[in-house]
Design a protein around this nucleic acid. Structure first.
Lengths: 221, 221
DNA sequence: CGACCATTTGATATGGATCAAGCGATGTGG
DNA sequence: CCACATCGCTTGATCCATATCAAATGGTCG
């Protein structure tokens, strides 16, 4: 865990930055790198949302534990994705590294005060939140479908997001897929074997999936 | 349906407005009133998102039809709520009036250009999108629970949002509740009668619900 | 009163959860 | 280098919550 001091040092002086207005490039220029081991917490639910994060490598999830102990995964972030941005001052979900991950961290207050002066930055913050909203809305649509449709939807989403061809490497174990889709690991597993039997995918290893998009598209009601 | 001309006329001159920076009050001052009959469309999925809306009276839903014909309701808007704000240029859901409704309409482009000059307005737009995000995230948590928990969650949400005591008037028929919760009307109906039998609610009419919050809270895992 | 629509109630079917066991890869200690 | 423990995944058997199909009831408006 990086110390607060280090982050402040790197975050300092943002007011002087000029001509750079993409939040992503601000993070890339001034973010402090931090490493998180598999399953370690990046921030907790209810904690003050003091930082904004960008995934450099690895995979991150946000999640919430329900009263009955079940866990719901809200979002999944892959390399390049920005997460942890809140409009309120508190994180509404917690965030954990799914695999060993490297992220860049930048102070939220610095961005917000920059946004007050620079309308381009303000627009970017808005856009980031809007993208998040769009993803969550898509997620809702997934959650009301059948198990097969959820799994197919998940695979197609991953195929879009990991820059690869038809062979994708799942960035997470079955349990995380299940908690993202609101299913059990057994159902996820069975559904994948079913898809394999139907020739819609191939599973050379449990983490590698060969997608036959034509067939999947047909199953993706 | 109000003509475009009328809306443009009222929307004109926003640049001259000064000292008023809440989006809600901008809409109230300059919005054009429109009326929509029960079940009529306010805007369609995929249409350009040229306007922003505020409910004056009535109830509005946003929805999407899934490939199999089922309908998912994304959000519900009551008097005072702002809806239709998009970061992209297109509406991702359609919006319909659940009951006869009156809404105020304002041009999105006017707000966006105002936001470019006025950081307070920019911050407001961001906040509105952030609130929407928070609601959708809560909605996701509802959708992975049992039928009883979903219905209880819905009732408690309504109790918070309609300014009333323990007796609330449901602003929508069973079918809309079902489509919001990802259930069938039969399950919603049965669950309500069950809650009544358990003494957690009373149902003097199908639209009026007397909430015994103590009991409901206990059921709301 | 009668027609229509929303809601409730009933009977049955089924998709996914649960409980349980087996399997295959990875890693560790002897 | 092999035996064994561990962990993630798959497969199997059964159960149960909710969907589906069907009919009855109730409330509203002409």
């Amino acid at each position: 865990m990086l110390t607060r001091t280090t982050i402040e040092q790197r975050g300092r002086g943002m007011g002087r930055v000029s001509g750079v207005r993409s939040v992503a490039s601000l993070i890339e220029m001034m973010g402090a790198p931090m490493n998180f081991a598999r399953n370690s917490e990046i921030y907790g639910e209810g904690e003050p949302a003091d930082y904004l994060y960008q995934v450099v490598s690895g995979t991150v999830r946000t999640s919430k534990i329900l009263a009955d102990g079940r866990r719901q995964i809200g979002s999944i972030y892959l390399a390049g994705d920005i997460f942890g941005l809140e409009v309120d001052d508190e994180h509404t979900f917690s965030a954990e590294a799914i695999t060993d991950s490297r992220v860049l961290v930048i102070k939220r207050s610095a961005l917000i005060s920059l946004a007050a002066r620079d309308s381009e930055v303000a627009h970017q913050l808005w856009t980031l939140t809007g993208r998040e909203l769009a993803r969550v809305q898509d997620h809702i649509l997934l959650l009301v479908k059948t198990a097969q449709e959820r799994v197919v939807g998940f695979l197609l989403e991953m195929a879009e997001r990991v820059p690869a061809g038809d062979m994708i490497e799942l960035p997470m174990p079955r349990q995380d897929i299940a908690d993202y889709l609101g299913l059990t690991i057994e159902t996820v597993s069975r559904t994948l074997t079913m898809l394999e039997n139907d020739g819609a995918i191939a599973l050379p290893t449990s983490r590698r999936v060969m997608l036959r998009k034509r067939a999947l598209g047909r199953l993706n009601a």
